[in-house]
């Protein structure tokens, strides 16, 4: 299945676009998404400061709430990656 990962903050380094399409096995959850993300970062962005992003990021569902690692993703689902925040 494929999901759309909407990018914010430092995760925008992962693509020139606002979102990244990611292939995952059916019925994957957030924990598996973290693993795939970690691989993408080590392959293509090892020189960036994204090393810990797959562990420190939270994820928002379309209800704009943090979902936990057991959250099951659906095919074509759009989910937001929320790197560590710090406005003001």
């Amino acid at each position: 299945m494929e999901i759309e990962l909407r990018l914010y903050g430092s995760s925008k380094i992962l693509s020139d676009k606002d979102a990244l399409k990611i292939e995952l096995p059916n019925n994957s959850n957030i924990e598996q998404l973290r693993e795939i993300l970690s691989k993408i970062i080590s392959k293509k962005h090892s020189k960036s400061n994204l090393k810990n992003l797959s562990k420190t990021a939270a994820f928002f569902s379309d209800k704009n709430e943090v979902v936990n690692d057991n959250y099951r993703l659906k095919d074509k689902e759009s989910i937001s990656i929320i790197p560590p925040i710090g406005g003001g």
Partner: peptide, 28 residues
């Protein structure tokens, strides 16, 4: 509370042309 709970991010731009996303507070 805004600094610790609102999903806002800062990318600094420097005089030497470099730029950097600043570290922050994880919502995980």
């Amino acid at each position: 509370e805004v600094k610790h709970g609102s999903p806002i991010w800062k990318k600094e731009h420097y005089t030497d042309g470099k730029e950097e996303w600043l570290p922050g507070h994880s919502l995980r």
